[in-house]
Design a protein around this nucleic acid. Structure first.
Lengths: 74, 74
DNA sequence: TTGTGACTTGTAGTCCGTG
DNA sequence: GCACGGACTACAAGTCACA
């Protein structure tokens, strides 16, 4: 049984790695706390839609594309 | 300039109307408070991903399809 | 049937550190 | 560079009376 928080965290990590940025540098670039961002990436947090939007924008992608990359959410 | 909370609320309403259910009946069917659901539909709440998942599941759709219906998020 | 203001409680989110 | 913890503050979750 899948967990949306973990799925989202993994997808974020996947896309962040593609940018070549560290958690810290990426978090800083979107004005987010590095420890909070790390806990989201590790599936520990129930993120709000406004903050998820911030991350998705920072990853230069769209909500559609972001979720298309998560098999479970199809 | 778009507002993700409002866009999401409108998309939820659009899909809920297709089910033919009232706010109250739909909210009840997914175990959510009627007034809370109403405030989400009206774009007043910064909903978390777990609650959004509950709604999306109740609407018998997927995250991908849900966001594909929001032009702004493409 | 739906919208909203007001409220309490739990947790999201911040900031300081550590190995 | 990352995972994790303690101690905070801000805000989402959840509920209600009333319109």
């Amino acid at each position: 049984m899948s967990n949306i928080k973990i799925e989202i965290g993994q997808r974020i990590k996947q896309l962040r790695l593609e940018t070549g940025l560290s958690q810290e540098k990426f978090a800083l670039s979107i004005g987010m706390d590095r420890t909070y961002f790390a806990s989201v990436e590790n599936g520990k947090r129930n993120i709000s839609i406004v903050n998820l939007e911030k991350i998705i924008n920072g990853l230069n992608t769209s909500f559609s594309n972001f979720f298309e990359g998560i098999p479970f959410t199809q």
